[in-house]
Nucleic acid binder design. Structure first.
Lengths: 205, 205
DNA sequence: AAGTGGTCTAGACCACTGA
DNA sequence: CAGTGGTCTAGACCACTTT
């Protein structure tokens, strides 16, 4: 459904075009309308729900539950990522990256298990960071002005290794979160985080 | 970290205050800065990642996988919701609501199982809709201009009932999605959707 | 080629809110 | 109460894109 142009609406509503423009720009940001130069503005028919939410650093997730946060860096090495990861991060086969395996705790109980690859070409500074003190998660968020990223959520059954690490039963349902972030076309980090059962992720829209 | 006021920045950058205002407004929308009248504008220190995504109608999720969508309305009744649901939807104890139990299929295979309560006070029109033809999900999205909502994600083990319904193994890991939507302070619908294992939800930021 | 949205300017008044 | 952001106006030029 086509709606009148900005100029016409401004006349009709008795306000400046700038005002109409801003209103329509905001509606477009919400996904309610679709705008194209010359083609005009249309009401989106199959409106999908735009969700937006803050996904905080794990420490804050834990602390917001009034629990004490801590983490343990289980492994830290600079090596070649498996081809699947290299592909996702747009690394060439020979490139090395920083690998980190971390367990996050809430009040001494395991809360999440994280495996992360960091592109040291993009973020060389991280080699100087003391990742025993500040988790890579948090270091990256505070130090790197990232431009763009994606996040995949799924439910999986805990493997034996992960179950043992999180001290839960084998095959428990876990919320698996895969994040991939980019800085100006270069990959920054690829992380897979397994959350203990009962963990809830809340989003709003 | 406090940054200069709009007027000062406009001078510094040699542009109009309106332009600075717009830029800062957009940064605030991204969550990069925090603005308060009189207090000024601050760079947010613990930047959490703003995620945004379209969560399409289930039919479109299925069709985007090149599969044929269908659904089956298993139950439809107008009755009192359990207290827990009534509370979430801000219904009084005596209020009735429309209950719908739906199975969504992708190419004849179960794809998701949905239990939904619809507030018929807010959306009386739905009583006239033919929910065998168009799923409630889709009817609501197309008919109701909702203002606000929330979404909770978690991983759970399939109960026997759900497992049988989705034709999967008992205790398979499911992605559980609880949605609650509002229209001007009144609840519209509360839905719980269980997605088959391996279903992935993609978000971007 | 023409019409649409995108963006900017220079100026104004207002509402909130922290000092 | 004073300074900040929030919002509006009237006008201008530009860039894209469809016809």
């Amino acid at each position: 459904m086509l709606i009148p142009g900005e100029q016409e609406l401004a006349l009709e509503l008795g306000c400046a075009r700038t005002t109409v423009n801003r209103a329509l720009r905001e509606l477009a940001a919400c996904g309610a309308i679709d705008r194209k130069r010359k083609a005009g503005t249309r009401v989106v028919s199959q409106r999908s729900q735009k969700v937006s939410a803050d996904i905080p650093v794990i420490r804050l997730q834990v602390e917001s539950r009034q629990q004490v946060y801590s983490f343990e860096l289980r492994k830290q090495s600079h090596c070649q990522p498996p081809p699947q990861v290299a592909l996702r991060m747009k690394l060439s086969a020979k490139d090395e990256a920083l690998f980190l395996r971390t367990i996050h705790f809430a009040d001494t109980r395991p809360f999440a298990f994280e495996e992360r690859w960091v592109n040291t070409e993009t973020v060389p500074m991280i080699m100087q960071a003391d990742l025993e003190q500040v988790s890579a998660n948090e270091w990256l968020v505070s130090q790197v002005p990232l431009s763009h990223g994606e996040l995949q959520l799924s439910a999986i059954a805990a493997s034996k290794t992960v179950a043992r690490t999180l001290k839960i039963e084998d095959k428990s349902p876990l919320l698996k979160m895969e994040r991939l972030t980019w800085l100006e076309g270069k990959s920054v980090t690829a992380a897979t985080i397994y959350h203990v059962p009962d963990h809830q992720l809340r989003l709003e829209f």
